[in-house]
Amino acid sequence: MSSSKKIRVLVAKPGLDGHDRGAKIVARALRDAGMEVIYTGLRQTPEMIVEAAISEDVNVIGMSILSGAHNALFPKVIDLLKAEGVDNILVIGGGIIPQDDVPALKAAGIAEVFGPGTPLAEIVGYIESNVKL
């Protein structure tokens, strides 16, 4: 049997902010790049995100936060993934994230952070070249 792999991505909105314009645009762009995208909707706790990522067996988690809660919530997702023994999911983030916060987020295990104005092709390209299938 031949193998026909597809990149599966969970697009998630952790925290309480309702600004999902960016998350929805990215979800569509990934779909148009041939990926299978599961969108969680708003107000996801880190626990819900990790549970969904495991159940859906995704290769990528993309999170978007515009409220400033990224320092509290992004690393928590990474910690929970580690606790579940998951190490093959590429975790990326986006939203309004001050440049100064990026090094700490990367050190915590967020592979890349995409700020406002990032072309969609850049995100697609990043996933395609860094995902572990």
Partner: peptide, 22 residues
């Protein structure tokens, strides 16, 4: 359904099932 053009898909039903998410 998957997109007939790109093979990609938006899978959005999970959003309605949040009460069982944990």
């Amino acid at each position: 359904p998957s997109s007939p053009f790109t093979g990609g898909a938006l899978l959005g039903d999970r959003i309605r099932m949040q009460e069982h998410s944990l």
